[in-house]
């Protein structure tokens, strides 16, 4: 079974295998060893679900790799906006939290809004530090 699992892992892109193959095999074996006493019917279902999961997971990983922007595209996007990627991400996080806070206030969830307000303060501080680092004004 372990050999079959290793073979199915070959369906994944190399990048995914390098990152997760060892850990996936370990989790698979742990799941199998801790439950094998449940009988052959359970084991057959488990093995089938695992193999199907690997096939669909591999398809998803290839799709994700194919649609991931290349480093050249990321550089182009950065160049287009004129801002470094981590700064753009920090700005997006501030926007996301602000939107959540506004929605919470609109729903009269003031406790939740207060939590978002604290998160927003932290996110803005992080943004300020990055702006300082890159010497970019607001």
């Amino acid at each position: 079974m372990k050999r079959a699992y290793a073979l199915f892992l070959l369906l994944y892109p190399r990048e995914h295998r390098d990152q997760f193959a060892e850990e996936m095999t370990s989790v698979f074996e742990e799941a199998r060893n801790q439950r094998h006493h449940r009988g052959w019917a359970w084991y057959a279902r488990f093995a089938l679900a695992e193999m199907m999961g690997l096939i669909s997971g591999a398809a998803g990983a290839w799709l994700s790799q194919a649609t991931k922007p290349s480093p050249e595209t990321s550089v182009a996007n950065e160049a287009q906006s004129g801002l470094p990627a981590d700064l753009l991400k920090a700005q997006q996080r501030v926007d996301l939290i602000t939107a959540a806070m506004v929605r919470a206030i609109g729903n009269h969830q003031f406790e939740r809004a207060r939590v978002h307000s604290n998160q927003e303060r932290e996110a803005r501080e992080n943004l300020r530090v990055l702006r300082e680092k890159y010497q970019i004004n607001e």
């Binding site: 698979f28 679900a49 695992e50 999961g53 690997l54 997971g57």
Partner: peptide, 12 residues
């Protein structure tokens, strides 16, 4: 009962 393929796809 999440399979390892589904779990690690989502974790990635």
């Amino acid at each position: 009962r999440m399979s390892t393929g589904t779990l690690f796809g989502a974790l990635r």
